[in-house]
Amino acid sequence: MTKDFLKAFGIVVRDQVIMKNSVEISGLGTFKAMHHSQRQEKRADGTTVMLPPRDSIEFEAEKKG
């Protein structure tokens, strides 16, 4: 397992997740993109703010079978 492989592994997974694609790795799990829509939140001081949307990466481990 080389450094180039690990670097490429990270880049490919990132790019695919950015493109909203899920990446499945056998024996490990699946990487998915999750989108969190904007939402209102009421703060402690009484003001209401609109939180911006957010994209995140989620990993789902492979279920043993």
Binding site: R14, V17, I18, M50, D55, S56, I57, F59
Partner: peptide, 22 residues
């Protein structure tokens, strides 16, 4: 899996720099 900050930022690239709007 806990993504690194770099990965988190790159994935959230579209919304980078956005702040809560009052």
């Amino acid at each position: 899996f806990i993504p690194s900050k770099e990965l988190e930022t790159e994935i959230n690239f579209k919304y980078a720099g956005m702040e809560p709007l009052e």
